[in-house]
C-alpha cells in the first residue's frame, strides 16, 4: 500500500501500542505515588505515636517531661476556638452568599466582591495572622486571647464557606423559587422557607470542611500569639489559649528524640478529630443528596 512495507507499518503500530502501555503504567504509578506517600505518612505517625497515645495523653495538661505530657490544653483550645469560629464564619459566610446570589444586582460592585473573594482564598494563611496581630491583638487591644485567634481564623476560612454556600444556593432548582414567588411570597419568605431548607445540607458540608481547615491551621495562630505552654483550658473569650497544631509544632521543634513520639501521638488526636469531622460532612452530603 502506497509503496510502504506492510510489515514495517505493522511494526510501527506494535511499537506505538507498546509505548502506550509503558506510559499507561508510568501514569498509573505516578498516581500511586501520592497515595503511597499518604500511607507512609500515616504509618509513620502510627508507629511513632501509638506507644504514647492513650486516654491519659488526651486528658493530661502539658508537662516539661515527655512521658508526663498530654494534649488536653491543645484539644480544649481547639474546641474553644471552634466555638468562636463556627458561628462567626458560618453566619457571615452564608449571609454573604445569600446577598450575592439573591439580592446583589449584576453590577461592578458585585463583580468586584466576587473577584475579591477568590483572591482572598489565595492569600497565604500567615498573612491573615499579620492582619489579626495588627488589627485584633493591637488596635482593638484584644491581646493574645481566644477571641483574637478565633476571629483571625474566621476571616481565613470565610472565602471557603462563601463559595460553598453560593454553590448550594445555586443548586436549588429555579422552579421552586418561581413556585414560591408565584404564591405572593416575598424574597425573604422564599429564602427562609424554600432556599435555606434545600441548601442547608450543602452549606453544612462546606462549612465543616472549612472548619476542619481552620482546625489544622498553625501559622496564623503562632502570629496572633497562641500559647505553647499553658496549663489550662480556656474558660472565656479573653482567656489565653493553645491549640492542637500549636502543641504539635512545639513538640516537633524540640531536639530530644522522645518528643517526636509525643508529637506523633498529638498528630493522631488531631487526625482523629479531622476524620470525624470529614465523616460527618460526607454523611450529611449522602443523606440529603437524594432528596433533591
Amino acid at each position: 500500500m502506497l509503496g510502504m512495507d506492510e510489515t514495517k507499518v505493522q511494526g510501527r503500530i506494535k511499537n506505538r501500542q507498546l509505548l502506550n502501555k509503558i506510559f499507561r503504567t508510568l501514569f498509573f504509578f505516578s498516581t500511586l505515588i501520592g497515595l503511597i506517600v499518604l500511607v507512609m505518612l500515616l504509618a509513620r505517625v502510627l508507629t511513632q505515636g501509638l506507644g504514647w497515645f492513650d486516654w491519659e495523653f488526651i486528658t493530661t495538661m502539658p508537662a516539661p517531661f515527655a512521658d508526663k505530657t498530654g494534649i488536653l490544653a491543645g484539644l480544649g483550645g481547639t474546641i474553644a476556638l471552634m466555638i468562636v469560629v463556627a458561628p462567626v464564619s458560618i453566619i457571615v459566610g452564608v449571609s454573604t452568599a445569600l446577598y450575592l446570589e439573591m439580592y446583589a444586582r449584576q453590577n461592578k460592585l458585585t463583580r468586584f466582591i466576587q473577584v475579591n473573594i477568590s483572591n482572598l482564598a489565595g492569600v497565604p494563611s500567615i498573612v491573615y495572622g499579620l492582619l489579626g496581630l495588627t488589627f485584633f491583638v493591637y488596635m482593638l487591644q484584644m491581646g493574645y486571647t481566644l477571641i483574637a485567634g478565633g476571629l483571625t481564623l474566621s476571616l481565613l476560612i470565610l472565602p471557603v464557606i462563601i463559595v460553598a454556600s453560593q454553590e448550594a444556593i445555586r443548586a436549588v432548582p429555579n422552579d421552586l423559587l418561581e413556585a414560591s414567588y408565584g404564591m405572593g411570597a416575598t424574597k425573604l419568605q422564599t429564602i427562609v422557607r424554600v432556599i435555606l431548607p434545600a441548601a442547608i445540607p450543602g452549606m453544612i458540608t462546606g462549612s465543616i470542611l472549612a472548619l476542619s481547615r481552620a482546625i489544622g491551621e498553625t501559622a496564623p495562630l503562632i502570629v496572633v500569639g497562641a500559647a505553647t505552654t499553658i496549663y489550662s483550658v480556656p474558660d472565656g473569650l479573653l482567656s489565653k489559649y493553645s491549640a492542637m497544631p500549636i502543641q504539635i509544632y512545639y513538640w516537633v521543634s524540640k531536639p530530644q528524640a522522645e518528643w517526636q513520639f509525643v508529637a506523633a501521638a498529638g498528630i493522631m488526636v488531631l487526625l482523629i478529630v479531622l476524620l470525624l469531622m470529614n465523616a460527618t460532612a460526607v454523611f450529611i452530603r449522602n443523606k440529603f443528596q437524594k432528596r433533591l
Binding site: D175, L176, A179, Y181, G182, M183, R193, P197
Partner: peptide, 29 residues
C-alpha cells in the same frame, strides 16, 4: 398581585416538603 393572581407552571414543581406543607405554604406565608 400574586396573591390574587396565582400561577401553575409547565413542569410540576412541588416543594420537597409533605403534601400538607405544600398546600399550606400559601396561607402560611
Amino acid at each position: 398581585l400574586r396573591t390574587k393572581v396565582g400561577m401553575v407552571f409547565q413542569k410540576p414543581n412541588p416543594f420537597p416538603k409533605s403534601v400538607y406543607d405544600n398546600v399550606a405554604y400559601g396561607p402560611r406565608i
